[in-house]
């Protein structure tokens, strides 16, 4: 399969008081284009750090992250930020919506920041797909948790990135909403031909993925 992103011998240690935390410890893995990959591990297994490094949100101590064959940590800070805006969509546990902007504005913001033109028909299509067409003028504080996460999904999809990274996207939701959001995420990603990398500690949710990568103590222990 075509590889969209690759991690090569990546290392990231943190100093926590006296001890050194090996968040990512000589880890290599690859992400396939158009697939849904779940990274599974207990809290503290280093899966979040791994995702952040994959998304260019942090800098590794050593090793490489190749996105579409290009080592992203060779780039200067500004170029990296630009690449992140253009190529990577993020979905966070706490939604990260901007409270002073309405749903529509939140969705088109990254596109505007990137200096691209907003394809209104496409955004409307996405909004319809995630079932928030009537709520497009609503402010984030009037939405439920599930709806907020739907907006975040729409925001990630709208920018048409090369890869969407989701960090425990249903961590703040109850189990019913979780099921809803996950099925929406999975189906949308497939429909829009996107690549999704999601980290989770939930073995049930991870079963939805096409590929499951298990992480323990900063290392990949198994890839299924």
């Amino acid at each position: 399969m075509s590889i969209i992103a690759e991690i090569k011998d990546l290392v990231k240690y943190y100093q926590m008081g006296e001890t050194v935390v090996k968040a990512v410890d000589h880890t290599s893995l690859s992400i396939e284009r158009g697939k849904f990959t779940a990274i599974v591990g207990r809290s503290g297994s280093g899966k979040s750090t791994l995702l952040h490094l994959l998304g260019g949100l942090d800098r590794p101590d050593s090793g490489q992250v190749l996105l579409e064959g290009k080592n992203i940590y060779e780039l200067k800070e500004e170029a990296l930020a630009q690449l992140r805006r253009k190529k990577i969509g993020f979905i966070f546990q706490d939604f990260n919506l901007i409270p002073s902007l309405n749903v529509w504005e939140n969705i088109v913001l990254p596109i505007g920041l990137d200096g691209r033109k907003v394809d209104e028909a496409e955004i409307l299509h996405i909004l319809e797909r995630i079932g928030l067409l009537e709520k497009r003028e609503a402010m984030p504080n009037t939405l439920s948790g599930g709806q907020k996460q739907r907006v975040a999904i729409a925001r990630a999809l709208a920018a048409a990135p090369a890869m969407i990274l989701a960090d425990e996207p249903t961590g703040n939701l109850d189990s019913q909403t979780e099921l809803e959001v996950m099925s929406l995420l999975k189906n949308c990603v497939k429909e829009f031909g996107q690549t999704l990398v999601m980290i989770t500690h939930d073995e049930t949710i991870a079963q939805m993925a096409d590929v499951v990568i298990m992480v323990e103590d900063g290392k990949v222990v198994k890839q299924l």
């Binding site: 079932g131 599930g146 019913q176 809803e180 099925s183």
Partner: peptide, 9 residues
């Protein structure tokens, strides 16, 4: 069988 917002479980 439970009805959710946009899915049936």
């Amino acid at each position: 069988v439970t009805r959710l917002t946009s899915n049936v479980r």
